[in-house]
C-alpha cells in the first residue's frame, strides 16, 4: 500500500491520478472495493472511536490518501480534538506498514519512506 499525505489542496489527488488511477477507481471519503481511498480523514471524522478498526481494510488498498490535519490550532470541541488525534494515530500505523509514504507539498511529491 502507498500512503499519500499532505495538507488540503496540496496536490494529492492529482498525484494519485498521475500514477494512472482513474476517477472510478478512487473512493472519496468511503471504504468500498475501489483500489484507492481518498479523503480518509472524512471517514475518521465520521466515527473517530472506530478509526483503529479501519487499519486492516486500508492496508489491503493500493493507495490511501489522507489530509494532514494536526498542524493547526487545537480545536475547541473535544470531538474535533479526538478526531484529529485519531486521524494522526491511524496514519502513523498505516505509515509503519506502508510500502511507500509520499508527502505532497505545493504539488511536489516527497517520498518520506520507501
Amino acid at each position: 500500500m502507498v500512503l499519500v499525505i499532505g495538507g488540503a489542496g496540496s496536490g494529492k489527488l492529482d498525484y494519485v491520478k498521475s500514477l494512472g488511477y482513474s476517477e472510478d477507481e478512487i473512493a472519496n471519503g468511503r471504504l468500498n472495493d475501489c483500489k484507492v481511498v481518498y479523503n480518509l480523514q472524512n471517514i475518521v471524522f465520521g466515527d473517530p472511536e472506530r478509526a483503529p478498526e479501519l487499519l486492516e481494510a486500508l492496508l489491503a488498498k493500493e493507495v490511501v490518501v489522507c489530509n494532514e490535519v494536526g498542524s493547526g490550532i487545537i480545536p475547541l470541541t473535544q470531538r474535533e480534538r479526538l478526531a484529529r488525534e485519531a486521524t494522526g494515530r491511524l496514519c502513523i500505523q498505516l505509515a509503519a506498514r506502508a510500502a511507500r509514504v509520499v508527502r505532497l507539498v505545493c504539488g511536489i511529491p516527497a517520498v518520506i519512506k520507501e
Binding site: E68, G70, S71, G88
Partner: peptide, 8 residues
Amino acid sequence: TGGSGCGK
C-alpha cells in the same frame, strides 16, 4: 516538531 498525533 510536528502536528497533533504525528508521533512526536
